[in-house]
């Protein structure tokens, strides 16, 4: 069995493994805590998500988050339940995000941004913190993760995008030997990024 070490370090592939880990550690402090706690007694199933309680009483930013998300994913319709759960996770990790999401929505409303790219690019230019906010929104919707926790798994948009070719692990619906068939071809993409690039962080396993 191989250790899963798929790496795309953009400019650190010549560094030693330990150096990589130390650099990650600065970003990964909560992650490391969680890993360390895995050997010890664990959290109960069904623990309520603290973020939810805070938003139960009609937080006005909830629908703003949904609207901003729709623009940033170039999708007209997103699931409000997922939206609420992702939002709760994002502001639980960082309460300042609430205000930042509000401002991002103001920015969106103030102009007429016809694409996710247009909004994201403008946002980063107006305030660098929006890059982090948008990363978290992308990570939430496409990977289903917020506050370093799974919010949704199979409902993550990344699986919607690829559902004609692969299934989310443990949810293969092709029946035995489906994998021998030919999957769809994919053209080389021509689109441009909207934000400045970041270091690609691969979590240690």
């Amino acid at each position: 069995m191989a250790a899963d070490r798929s790496c795309f370090p953009t400019n650190i592939h010549l560094a030693s493994p330990n150096a990589m880990r130390m650099r990650r550690a600065l970003r990964m402090s909560r992650r490391d805590m969680l890993l360390g706690a895995m050997g010890a007694a664990v959290v109960a199933l069904g623990a309520s998500r603290p973020g939810f309680a805070a938003t139960e009483e009609a937080d006005p930013v909830v629908p703003l988050f949904l609207a901003v998300s729709q623009r940033l994913t170039d999708r007209d319709v997103l699931d409000p339940q997922i939206s609420h759960a992702l939002y709760a996770g994002i502001i639980h990790a960082n309460p300042e995000r609430r205000e930042q999401i509000h401002k991002l929505h103001d920015l969106m409303a103030s102009g007429s941004f016809a694409s996710a790219r247009a909004l994201a690019s403008a946002a980063e230019h107006s305030d660098p913190v929006f890059k982090d906010v948008i990363h978290e929104i992308m990570t939430g919707w496409y990977r289903g993760v917020a506050d370093q926790k799974v919010v949704v798994y199979r409902s993550a948009l990344m699986f919607d995008i690829t559902k004609d070719a692969v299934y989310p692990k443990t949810y293969a619906a092709g029946g035995p030997f489906y994998w021998t068939q030919t999957p769809p071809e994919v053209a080389v993409p021509t689109g441009e990024p909207a934000l400045s690039p970041s270091k690609f962080v691969v979590e240690p396993t």
Binding site: A116, Y142, L157, V202
Partner: peptide, 30 residues
Amino acid sequence: DNQVDLATSLAISKGYVGRELEEQIRYLAS
């Protein structure tokens, strides 16, 4: 190995959003 999650993380780190992100994910995963 299903590369969708990894492709998504990579594409986000490269700065893609929206439609372009989705194209990147499809291409990288495939």
